[in-house]
């Protein structure tokens, strides 16, 4: 039988035959993630943006800042609103007009992780205590969904926040916040900007994640969409740069995860975190050279 026909008719046997040889259909060894690239500043109109690619999975993330009045219970804190979109362009499974089931779940998980990891100190987003603070809208668009969506979304989110440039603002005579545009800044300087020092968001420990598919005794790092649909048990580990566990998410699925498998996944994630950190640092330093 032709290989392509075999792949379509008996997908599980096709993959298991590969696994026996410790290789995957795309030529990767089991524990290796796909090639990952980050391009910072992909959206010119946003305050911070990034395009992250893991293999074919592509995510575009952009952060926009708006001035808001902080809530009474937290007068010196800003606010972050995260939204993950899966337009019909990303996958044949998403139909126009009907929102993808996965999108709100990933939005919720991203919000949980970005807020609970302590990556961003919300106090950093404060401008005038009790009067004004930044509201950061993070929108992530999935352009191509080829597996490991959460990993790519988190990577693009972290990259967009590290690219974020906070605009200079000042208080006008009425006590309202106004943007100081770049051109006439010389004339406006006497208004003294509120946040002259705080142009870059201080990021603490960055969270990075790795999704692994568990199938029998095999652990496949960074699955493609095909692998995810055939071997349905997956586990996502999120670690921060100091290797603390931010999240370990295994939402059901046909297989069970033994303790040893979880330990192996954590070990793979530790490697991956170092890799991703290097890729992100390179992207940032490339940006600064330009």
């Amino acid at each position: 039988m032709e290989v392509d026909a075999f792949r379509r008719l008996f997908p599980l046997r096709f993959h298991e035959r590969h696994l026996l040889e410790s290789i995957r259909p795309d030529g990767r060894p089991l524990g290796r993630a796909r090639d990952t690239t980050i391009a910072l500043g992909a959206v010119a109109s946003a305050n911070g943006s990034a395009l992250a690619k893991i293999g074919c999975t592509t995510m575009l993330a952009a952060v926009k800042l708006e001035v808001m009045t902080p809530k009474a219970e937290s007068p010196d804190e800003g606010c972050i609103v995260i939204d993950f979109h899966m337009p019909p362009i990303c996958s044949p499974l998403v139909r126009p007009g009907r929102p993808a089931e996965a999108a709100p779940v990933i939005t919720k998980q991203l919000t949980d992780i970005i807020l609970s990891s302590g990556m961003i100190d919300l106090k950093e987003l404060s401008l005038v205590s009790g009067k004004a603070a930044w509201m950061a809208y993070l929108d992530i668009y999935c352009l191509d969904a080829d597996g490991a969506l959460f990993d790519a979304a988190l990577l693009s989110a972290v990259a967009a926040f590290s690219h974020l440039q906070i605009p200079v603002v000042s208080l006008n005579d009425n006590g309202r916040i106004v943007l100081l545009s770049e051109e006439n800044s010389g004339a406006m300087w006497e208004k003294e900007p509120v946040n002259k020092e705080k142009r870059k968001l201080k990021l603490d420990t960055l969270p990075f994640s790795l999704t692994c598919v568990l199938h029998k005794n095999y652990i496949l790092a960074d699955p493609s969409a095909e692998e995810e649909s055939i071997m349905e048990t997956y586990l996502t580990v999120v670690l921060d740069s100091s290797m603390q566990l931010v999240s370990l998410n295994k939402p059901g699925g046909p297989g069970l995860a033994q303790t040893s498998a979880i330990q192996d996944c954590v070990a793979l994630t530790i490697q991956r975190v170092k890799e991703l950190q290097k890729i992100l640092n390179e992207a940032i330093s490339d940006m600064e050279v330009d």
Binding site: S116, V246, S247, L248, N249, K250, P251, L256, V266
Partner: peptide, 13 residues
């Protein structure tokens, strides 16, 4: 083995 695991908050492994 575990069927499902969901965590919130930062902790050590």
């Amino acid at each position: 083995g575990i069927i499902t695991s969901v965590t919130h908050g930062v902790m050590s492994v």
